[in-house]
Amino acid sequence: MDSNTPLPNGTSEVVLRAKKLNVYYGSNRAVRDVDLDISENTVVAFIGPSGCGKSTVLRCFNRMNDLIAAARVEGSITFRDDDIYAPNVDAVELRSRIGMVFQRPNPFPKSIYENIAFGARINGYKGNMDELVEQSLRKAALWDEVKDKLKQSGLALSGGQQQRLCIARAIAISPEVILMDEPCSALDPISTLKVEELIQELKQQYTIIIVTHNMQQASRVSDHTAFYNAEATEKGNKIGYLVEYDRTEVIFQNPAQQKTQEYISGRFG
């Protein structure tokens, strides 16, 4: 790995910073005390066993948890020094700047073209829409496969193509950060490879946070890795917490924490 890669708390500009982040579902605490800095133009992988809260933390960054009535967030997340949970911040506007790709491809039941144009249109895009659609599809490495069938339904594509369409859709509104929630878990190995290559391409321009179950994937695509774990409470539910966060090579070759070592070597999870 490139030795110039900035450390999590290094000199490169911090895009997102979580401080004392706690997430509750009703009265249950799901995640406790996460402190984390995400630097510009890096790929950060969130790994850890099921139920460790990595997806929950991810969904705090674009306030998708707002949509769940019972969810409550404490602590702070700053996006380029602005607290995104401040009362004057609009979640809708925030989400147009922090894009997201989901676990299962979820193209809208519209044409391929409209899938991409939708986000741009609601966000008041003033440029040439055809160009934007083409650019976005090219960036998502999908253009050559779909350029002759832009009017076809997005649902007619294969699973891997659908996921790249969802990535193109996210890119189309030029977000600064892209959150990916296990983007390959529903894909076959070949499609997975394509999406991973795509992530490598995209990190030139975007900051990417990717949640993954797949440790090889984390080691292949990411610069930094955050390892989360879960512990049981007296009440019997699980609380997720951040165990260790460092350069990916450190996490995988020389982790500071015993738990990380055990997880990496496959002893649990």
Binding site: N88, D90, A120, N123, G124, Y125, K126, E176
Partner: peptide
């Protein structure tokens, strides 16, 4: 870095006018 309360919208040079 204290959160700056007044600037909710971080302007970007993008052709988007939400």
């Amino acid at each position: 870095t204290p959160p700056s309360p007044e600037s909710a919208s971080v302007a970007a040079e993008r052709p988007y006018y939400p």
